[in-house]
Amino acid sequence: MAGAPEALVEARSLTKHFGRHVAVDGIDFRVERGEAFGFLGPNGAGKSSTMRMIGCVSPLTGGELRVLGMDPSRDGPRIRARLGVVPQEDTLDTELTVSDNLAIYGRYFGLSRAVIRERTEELLEFAKLTERRHDRVDPLSGGMKRRLTIARALINRPEALLLDEPTTGLDPQARHLLWDRLYRLKQEGVTLVLTTHYMEEAEQLCDRLVIMDRGRIAAEGSPRELIARHATREVVELRFPSAGDLQAALPRLAGVAERVEPLADRVLAYTGDGDATVATIAGNGVHPASVLVRRGTLEDVFLVLTGRTLED
């Protein structure tokens, strides 16, 4: 490996079984230092199991994994000392105060009280929780608890922050504030590894991502590359008054775009030029209840690759 830049995480044929259930089915990926790397996929795709293996809490069933150049099965505590973990469900000490939570967590890493005190100031500022520092955690809003969990995960100045579904369950405003904080971390050079089933989150935050489905990686690339490779620049969404009308219209939609994808409630037409496609559709005598031209997204990439939507 001399000369080659060392990957922060490197996985080969990574596999995780729970009894007879195969959660992660032999995946390969590399996370480079300083990038924001995402695992995008629906619930049950194997994202969280993968994260728990990277975080050195869940042993591998098979394959190889190196984190920070070390072997999780041998060097778990040493690796974890240099990671920050934001789990899917909050694991805060809700009976205690905001600053107590940071202090306790800092002590798990063996940090001195002086260091913890100094970092607490910074982290409270970062998480916009300075005013709430002496409050108990329990009554805080979901967004505040998430920000505290992220602040807590940063107490050891980790080289990488692992975030499992960081904004699931938050309202849009809280989600945007969180994205803003994560974006700032990325600017500061912290490597982010995150899982999400929100394509918007993946597009906003990830430099590079893999799309996971049923324990496997379906595609890999930057959001823009993936859209260019698997979807199209624009997508025309057609809605019909009933499923019968939708079925009836399908023969006349054949060939109006590069690809026509019928779903339960709508038809998607993948095209380089939305307006031209809309005109062709009208020319074919199809009159949907509504027509929407939008740009292609990662949601479309997932649909094209798996035949299902991310929310399924």
């Binding site: 975080g55 809490v57 778990g76 505590p77 040493r78 974890r80 000392a81 990671l83 973990v85 789990p87 469900e89 909050d90 694991t91 805060l92 000490d93 809700t94 967590y105 798990y108 890493f109 063996g110 050891n156």
Partner: peptide, 14 residues
């Protein structure tokens, strides 16, 4: 219920 032990094992603690 609170999963606080899971938070511990994400750190150097085993």
């Amino acid at each position: 219920w609170a999963r606080t032990f899971h938070a511990m094992v994400a750190t150097p603690l085993r």
